[in-house]
């Protein structure tokens, strides 16, 4: 392997970057000066190697296509410590969410659970299905616990939600 191979041959894509900036309504949330404070406190750093400062810088430099295709986007725990403490009021969290949206638009592989949640919302209005809770030998559900029945979304909701999902 030559020395050159050690470096990424990727080229920045400024069009993709513009797309991310437009989703973020400008550059403010990407205006990072690399103090690393976000990464020092990132919940997903130790186990999943998410480095928010790197996401910020890559987005800034235009390496958006790589980010969109990368699994790293899906490691964010959304604990929001990065945006809370950022001295430049940048927001790795929002950048990551914008990149996730872009990944979906481009139909890159994304964790199944997210798509499942969306289709569940479409079907039932809710992102999750009712569960029976087991404790000891007994099982409980809303009915046995005498919790009120919750109605399904009215007709027309599905179409509207689908329409909302079309927005880019």
């Amino acid at each position: 392997m030559s020395l050159v191979d050690l470096m990424s041959m990727a080229k920045p894509n400024l069009k993709s970057r513009a797309k991310v900036f437009s989703k973020l309504k400008g550059r403010d949330l990407v205006n990072c000066f690399q103090c690393i404070k976000c990464t020092s406190g990132c919940t997903a750093l130790k186990l999943l190697e998410l480095k928010p400062h790197e996401v910020e810088k890559l987005a800034n430099l235009g390496f958006v296509d790589e980010l969109v295709a990368s699994d790293i986007l899906w490691t964010c725990v959304t604990c929001l410590k990065c945006i809370q403490r950022c001295p430049q009021k940048a927001s790795p969290y929002h950048v990551i969410m914008a990149l996730r949206n872009l990944a979906v638009e481009r139909e890159v592989k994304i964790p199944e659970a997210f798509m499942k949640a969306v289709s569940q919302v479409l079907e039932t209005g809710m992102a999750e299905a009712y569960q029976k809770i087991a404790k000891g030998t007994e099982t409980f559900d809303r009915e046995s616990l005498k919790l009120p029945r919750i109605g399904s979304p009215r007709e027309g909701f599905q179409a509207l939600f689908l329409k909302a999902l079309e927005e880019k």
């Binding site: 103090c35 690393i36 404070k37 990464t39 020092s40 406190g41 403490r85 001295p87």
Partner: peptide, 9 residues
């Protein structure tokens, strides 16, 4: 020890 990085908390 000069550490190029700022702690979060």
């Amino acid at each position: 020890n000069f550490v190029a990085g700022i702690p979060s908390d």
